[in-house]
Design a binder for these strands. Structure first.
Lengths: 203, 203
DNA sequence: CAGGGCGGTTGCGGTGGCGCAAAGACCGCT
DNA sequence: AGCGGTCTTTGCGCCACCGCAACCGCCCTG
């Protein structure tokens, strides 16, 4: 799958489950008026598009390749059958879906209660944890990520994201360019995310 | 359980799953700085507090009784054992948790992209669907619900909720009092939620 | 019936972040 | 090298919403 290709589309019936072998996939939900929200990014080894086969059989979001991708998919029936035969697998699936539910609940709380800057910090930290790669300047997010993407993760606009990153850049916290972000001072970002004083009080 | 009692508390280890026989329970998540978000309301016949036993064993939120409650609880081990014995049960649990995940994702999209008024309308409609009771004046939400509660469901402040409800009241859309809301014109609320013109264009 | 408390209402001022608009930077393609 | 498109930056004005604060009214309690 080349970058920018759609692996499946919101509303489409789900015949299969998916797992990502290589590349990166973005899960995007679109509202009735076309507003988009990034639900999550999928990395190698993760399953996706499985929620549909556990619920009403329709994909609740779009999946689009962010980098060139290799995926593996299997018929939905195989999954349920496997779970019937090996309960451990069902329990495992439950714990995965449960974990995701927790994460979305946390994001809901963030979006509902925190200011934009903190939300952006949280989003970047989450991405670092999930797709961080050490480079000499700091930690780089290992796939193409536009301002628009970050905006759709945090419920703001690309303009505000751009301004925020510019501000951070001038403070030496991040370095960012076209679809690419490097965090130079992760601890500073954590301070922002936790709403601590930006510089540790001295004395 | 008398009203306002806590059934369990965020962070506490979960020894048991719960089901509500009668009454109403509010699930509230508290952030590091004390800001609260209402995740959902539980009605009779619904299970709750089960996410913990599927994941890390710690309750991710508080459960507090909103009205006097009767609950039933069972040891966590019984649940997993039951699922191992009867895979159908596991599949069922999966579909319930999956459904909740979808719902939270939808709320995330709403909070991230919609204006306050629409969010409040959505929240009320959701409550009507879940706990609506027909009365002569319209549909009443069948349990005590404060402005603060609505605010915590929609990511705003009780002040804004109060102002919004007042405005709707003066338009005859709702009737509200102390911890109590009656929707007089559900269709008008839907119009607001869907961002349609408030009065149908005539001609 | 007096008093206290909780929940709700409302005015006012401030502002964070949006929306618009225009320009700039960079990439890939031919 | 030239060109078009995509992504980004930045200034400006505005407004939805928040935060504060004061007040009101209902309900419960003694």
């Amino acid at each position: 799958m080349p970058a920018a290709a759609a692996l499946f589309t919101q509303g489409e019936p789900a015949a299969a489950g998916h797992a990502l072998i290589d590349g990166r996939v973005k899960i995007v939900q679109t509202g009735p008026d076309g507003q988009q929200v990034v639900m999550r990014f999928i990395g190698p080894g993760e399953m996706f598009g499985t929620l549909a086969i556990f619920t009403d059989g329709l994909y609740p979001a779009d999946a689009v390749a962010v980098a060139d991708c290799v995926e593996l998919s299997w018929p939905a029936a195989a999954m349920t059958e496997l779970m019937d035969r090996h309960p451990v697998i069902a329990r495992n699936a439950l714990s995965i879906v449960g974990g995701r539910l927790r994460e979305v609940q946390n994001r809901l709380r963030e979006v509902a209660t925190e200011r934009v800057e903190r939300r952006i910090a949280h989003a970047l930290l989450r991405l670092v944890r999930q797709a961080g790669r050490r480079v000499e300047a700091g930690v780089e997010i290992d796939f193409p990520l536009s301002r628009q993407d970050v905006a759709e993760m945090t419920g703001t606009t690309l303009h505000t994201v751009s301004r925020t990153l510019s501000a951070w850049e001038s403070q030496g916290i991040v370095e960012s360019g076209r679809q690419q972000v490097v965090i130079r001072k992760p601890h500073a970002l954590v301070a922002i995310a936790e709403d601590l004083p930006p510089v540790p009080p001295r004395g």
